[in-house]
Amino acid sequence: MQVEQILVSTLILTTPILLAAIGGLVNRQAGIVNIGLEAKMLSGAFVAVIVSSATQSWFIACLAAALSSAVIGWMFSLTITRAHANMIVAGLGLNILVAGVLGFILSWVYKTSGTLRQPDVVLLPDVLPEFFEKIPVIGPALSSLDPLTIFAWITVFCLPFVLTNTRIGLWIRATGNAPHVTRAVGLRSLAIQDASTAFAGFFAGLAGAHLALASLGLFNEGLTAGRGFIALAAFYFGRDRPIQTAMACLLFGFLDNTQIRLQTAGFPPKLIGMTPYLMVLLALIFTSVRAQRKARL
């Protein structure tokens, strides 16, 4: 009965996590653990709202969000690759810095705090024609698909191909695996890492745009609500492989979605919220222990 609706909302809740995780996993394949996804999502959401209102175009808004976050990502990458900053601390610092800058802009430019409403924000449209809704079970989910969700899933399914079959994909994997080898064969490993972080920024920006424009049409300081870290958990859980990571995102989106049911069944909301992290921890332990067993044999 409600399967359709669960499907719809799981899909929508998954999209921002998925977009951020796509960026994060590519970044990590190139050897950078991106703790700053949260910051880039937030700035993406902000830019998306401003631009959507100004241009009346969801497309330009998403593009602007993605590009601005890509630039932030690229600059962030420079501190890591060129100035040898520790990526974890720099990422945490970026999260604080971006939140501070956005708060500042909100209060000084827009004379508001926390929430920014702009007139005539254009939301993401439903893409597929209405008759899709008639398809049983998955119909409603299909008909509520927005362009970013479609883009995210297309990317997920293209990504394995891109990573295995294109030059840049090979370079990224080689850089993450053995940067000295990449350099030895004449590739610019640092530039490849920078590009991957910019890519992560691009997708985190889209994730932010989705949060802001999927249904709300406004910016809020708490909009990302730790989804950057959930994305991190997802690509750790999926071990940087696109399909597996996407499945982890779906699982986390589903968990988020079923909170209400679990809450009525007596689970405290706080403890439900920690499941992704617990799962990553357990997965990490499991794989490490298994790897060691294997090595000992």
């Binding site: 909302s9 929508i12 809740l13 921002p16 926390g114 949060l211 999927a214 249904s215 709300l216 406004l218 809020n220 300081e221 708490g222 909009l223 609500a225 988020d256 979605n257 909170q259 209400i260 809450q263 009525t264 909301p269 706080k270 919220g273």
Partner: peptide, 16 residues
């Protein structure tokens, strides 16, 4: 039906 969003600033989740 009673539920908590575990956040005061997450409209996306509130919606879902």
């Amino acid at each position: 039906k009673v539920a908590y969003a575990d956040s005061f600033g997450d409209p996306a989740k509130g919606l879902q």
